[in-house]
Nucleic acid binder design. Structure first.
Lengths: 263, 263
DNA sequence: TCAAAAGTGTTTCCAATACACCCATGA
DNA sequence: TCATGGGTGTATTGGAAACACTTTTGA
C-alpha cells in the first residue's frame, strides 16, 4: 500500500468495521450464451477473489453487499440474496497455497507502520456471509480500484485459482441457483429487456446443465403468460427470424411469489 | 448470577468466544399431530428464547449448534442445517419491549464485578447464524440449566412472546421447511422408527398447512419405495387396524439426494 | 430451391386429483 | 350390525416429453 491516502484510509476504516465479519458476493452474469462469475485479481497476487468486503458497524449487511456491487458494476437495484454463511476454521489465509501466497505478496506491500494492525486484522477468524447476485453482464461497467488490477467476467466452466474458500462459495452458489431456479428472477435479471426464446432457453440450459427440448420449452414458457411479444429480430442469417419477447413485470412478480414451475 | 462458579465460568468463557457472533437453533419436534418448537424461558425474564449460544474461537459453528442441542435434548446425530444469518442493526436487546425487559431483569442479577464486562458483551452488535433442526419430540430429554427455568415444546400455532428477532427466526424456519419439504428428511427425523401412514400424512399436513387426500397420499408415498411394512397396529379403536411402516435408510438417502417429489 | 432455425401440432405417458368401494375392527 | 378409519380401485385431467410438420429467411 504505497499509495498514502488509500492505505491510511483503509487502516482507519478497520476500526469502523465489525471485527471477524466479512461478506462475499457471487455475481452471476450471462453473456453470449455463457454463464459467468465476476472475479477480481489483486495486484501482486497470483490468485483471484470474489468481490467482497467488511461490514461497517452502522450498516446493514445487505446494504454493504449492494455497495460492493455498485462499486464494481455501477449498477443499483441488483437482485441479491443471502445463501450461506461460511465460518469454517479451515477457511483462513493460511489454509491453502493460493491464500498463503496471496497474503504474503500483499503483506510485502504494507508499510511498516501499518504492518502490525493489518496482520492482526487479516489473521482473525472471519465469518463470511455469502450473497448471490444476478445481473445482465453487458450492463455492468466493470471497475478496478487501487488494490485490484483486473475485474472481469469469468465463465463458470473455466474458473482460475481462487483464494480462501471462494471456489467452494461459487460451487455452492451454483447449486443454489440450480435448485432455486423456479423461485429466482432468472430471465428478468440476467437477460436484456428484449430477448428471443432461444436466448432464454440457452440461459436455462447453462444453469441446469442439460439440453432442453426446443418446442416444449417455448410452449411451456409462453403458457406462463408473463411475456409480451414484440417485433421480429432480423439476424441476417438465412432462417426464419425469431420474435423478441420482454417480461411483463406485474405478471412476473405475481408468478414469482408462487414459484415458476419449471424442470 | 448469584451462583458463583457458574457466573465466574461464564465470564471467563466470554474471552474464548468469537465476539459479535452467535447462533440460534429452531428445533422442530413433532408430537401428537402437532408441530412444536423447542423454547427456553430464562429465570426472571418474562419472554422466551430459542436455544442458542456463542461460538468458541476454536470450534466449528455446526459443532457448536450440535453441542447446544445435545445439552437441551440429550440427543446426538440430529438433522441440522443452516438456513439464514440474521445481522440487522435492529435486532439488539434494546429494540423491542420483551428484549429490553429481559436484559434489564437479567442485569439486575449480575454481580457488580461482572457488570461492566457483561453489559459490554450483550450490547455488542451480534451477527447470528440460525440453524434448523428436526427431531422426534418424544425422544428428547428436555433439560434446563442454571439460567433457564423452563425448556419446553411449544406448538407453532401458539407461540409466546419472544426476545430479539426470535419470532422472525421461527417464521423464516417454517417457510424454509415448507419450501424445502422435498429435500429434507421430514419423516425420518420427526417420527419414531415405526409409524402409520396417517401419522406421516398428519405430519405433512401440519407443515404444508392444508388437508391432503388420504388415498392419494398413501399411494404416492408407497410408490417412493422407501418404506418397509411391518405388523398391524391394534389401536383398540373400532376400525380397521393400520399397518406400521419404517423407512429403509439406504433407499431413503438415495432418494433424498435427488429430492423427494411431493406437493 | 435449399439449409437452417423458428413456430406449431400430435401422440404418448404418467402424475395429480377426486372420489368410490370394500375391508377390518371393536363397541 | 354399525360406525369408523384403513387399504385399494378407477376415471379424469393436465403437464412433460418425444418428435413430426410447416413456415420464414437469406444464400
Amino acid at each position: 500500500m504505497k499509495n498514502k491516502s488509500f492505505a491510511d484510509n483503509f487502516v482507519k476504516d478497520l476500526l469502523r468495521f465489525v471485527p471477524g465479519v466479512s461478506l462475499d458476493c457471487v455475481v452471476f452474469g450471462y453473456r453470449d450464451g455463457i454463464l459467468n462469475v465476476l472475479l477480481l485479481k489483486h495486484r501482486n497476487v497470483d490468485a483471484w477473489t470474489l468481490p467482497g468486503g467488511f461490514l461497517l458497524s452502522d450498516m446493514e449487511m445487505q446494504d454493504a453487499a449492494h455497495d460492493i456491487l455498485y462499486k464494481r458494476t455501477g449498477l443499483q437495484d441488483i437482485f441479491l440474496t443471502q445463501y450461506h454463511t461460511f465460518s469454517s476454521l479451515h477457511r483462513g489465509w493460511d489454509v491453502n497455497e493460493q491464500s498463503r501466497l496471496a497474503i504474503a505478496q500483499v503483506q510485502s506491500t504494507w508499510e511498516v507502520k501499518h504492518k502490525e494492525l493489518l496482520t492482526k486484522w487479516f489473521h482473525q477468524r472471519f465469518i463470511s456471509t455469502a450473497y448471490l447476485a444476478l445481473i445482465e453482464a453487458d450492463k455492468a461497467l466493470l471497475t478496478t480500484d487501487y488494490l485490484s488490477e483486473r475485474c472481469e467476467w469469468i465463465p463458470i466452466t473455466d474458473l482460475p485459482n481462487l483464494v480462501l474458500d471462494h471456489a467452494q462459495m461459487i460451487q455452492m452458489a451454483l447449486e443454489y441457483l440450480k435448485v432455486q431456479i423456479n423461485y429466482l428472477p432468472i430471465g428478468k435479471s440476467l437477460l436484456p429487456d428484449k430477448f428471443t426464446m432461444s436466448d432464454l432457453q440457452t440461459l436455462y440450459e447453462s444453469i441446469v446443465q442439460r439440453k432442453l427440448d426446443r418446442g416444449n420449452f417455448q410452449r411451456k414458457m409462453l403458457k406462463l403468460g408473463i411475456f409480451k411479444r414484440h417485433e421480429k429480430l432480423m439476424t441476417g442469417a438465412s432462417n426464419k427470424a425469431p420474435f423478441l419477447y420482454s417480461i411483463d413485470d406485474q405478471r412476473y412478480h405475481l408468478l414469482l411469489s408462487e414459484g415458476i414451475r419449471f424442470r
